[in-house]
Amino acid sequence: MVTLDFRTLTVPVGIVRILEMILTCITFSLVASVGRGIDSFWTWCMFTWCFCFCVTFLILLLEFTSLSSKLPISWDDFTTAFAMLATLMILAASIIYPIFFACSNCGKQIGATVTSCLAFILYAVEVGLTRAKPGELSGFLSTVSGLLKVLEAFVACIIFICLEPTQYTRFAGLQWCVAVYSICFIFALVVIIFTICRLLSLFPAPFDKILIACNVLAVLMYITAVVIWPLYSFKNNPRPSWCAAGGRLGAVCPWNKLVVISFMTCFNLVAYIVDTFYSFRLVFFVSRT
């Protein structure tokens, strides 16, 4: 039986979600009204805003009708993980869209950029509202370590988007780096899916111990990637002169993508180090006290 819960629309997180829907709707409406040919970057941005709007609407609808409590998943983990993912996706779209499509005399494009940035702020606020507080019982993905898992997976996706087979098939070292990105991404994705679907009990050992072991291994593997990737990528490979061009031409330069991958590798290494610290703290300090 469906029971309407009007309180879900009046609590702070409910109000934030309504504003998120309004801003993402305005953003993709402005961008769609401008019109654009088939373009991967334009498609990515439109997908981001439409995806976030639809999932936020679905979350509000399921909570308003109380159907969320009847789903065989960890609802708190799902909503927190989505809020973190939406924050990262809209942040990326808010950076990519103005770089490629905005100009000084493009009113709608500038307006879409502003509303997208506001939507990013709101999703970041939602992450803060749904994140587990100290001493509060909640799902794994509501903790700092859980949110870091979403961040690590998202950064790995950015790395995969920038990868080109012609760049890493030349050297075994670069292939090792791709293996590092893939293995760590798969584990992060498995943790997220298993947590949301309440399948952590299927792990052959205590989850917290597996988490620590995999995080330590990921740190060691990413340390090698931080050294090996730029070493082989930029060896005898100076930046082409045409890559210095402004606008889209320079942004899609394969050499520039190597720089992005190098930066994201360092970023993910820091994320895994922080994740490992929180995992150790959770197991050896918080659990004992």
Rank of each mutant, 00 (worst) to 15 (best):
F280M: 05
F6A: 11
F6G: 12
A119Y: 00
I38M: 12
G146M: 01
L60K: 04
M221L: 13
N268K: 09
A271R: 03
A225T: 00
V286N: 15
F82P: 00
G247H: 04
K235H: 14
F207V: 04
A188I: 02
T79A: 04
A225V: 00
F28G: 01
C103E: 10
R198N: 10
C103D: 12
F203C: 07
V11N: 05
I38N: 13
T115Y: 00
S142I: 13
R36L: 07
P240W: 03
L202R: 14
P134Q: 05
M46V: 09
C266L: 15
V13G: 06
N256R: 05
L249S: 14
C162S: 14
T80K: 07
R17K: 11
N237F: 08
A225L: 01
L19Q: 11
A156L: 02
F101H: 03
I96C: 03
W49G: 08
S182V: 05
V2I: 11
S142A: 11
V178T: 01
G14L: 02
C157F: 13
T224Q: 14
A86S: 08
L9Y: 06
V16Q: 07
F284G: 14
A102Q: 11
I95K: 08
A81Q: 04
G111C: 02
T143W: 10
R36S: 12
C243Q: 02
I22M: 10
S116K: 01
F234G: 02
I196E: 00
L30G: 01
S142K: 11
I193T: 07
P206S: 05
W255I: 01
V252Q: 08
W176E: 15
L217P: 13
S262N: 06
Y232G: 12
C106T: 05
R248P: 12
I96K: 03
V259K: 07
F284N: 10
P98E: 02
W255R: 01
M89I: 09
F234M: 02
R288N: 12
D275S: 11
F64T: 07
F101C: 00
L202G: 06
I95Q: 06
A251W: 08
N215L: 04
I212C: 03
P230H: 03
T276C: 07
A102C: 13
A271D: 05
T3W: 13
S279P: 05
F51H: 11
Y181D: 09
T10I: 12
A102P: 06
T43M: 15
G35H: 02
G173L: 00
F28K: 01
N105S: 12
E20Y: 04
L217I: 11
V55S: 06
C177V: 02
T79M: 06
I161S: 13
T87M: 10
I193Y: 05
M221F: 10
F78Y: 08
C25H: 15
L151R: 07
T27N: 03
L67N: 08
K257C: 08
A156D: 01
F6C: 11
S116E: 01
V190L: 14
V127H: 03
L88N: 01
Y168R: 00
F277I: 10
Y272P: 03
G247D: 04
V286K: 15
L199D: 06
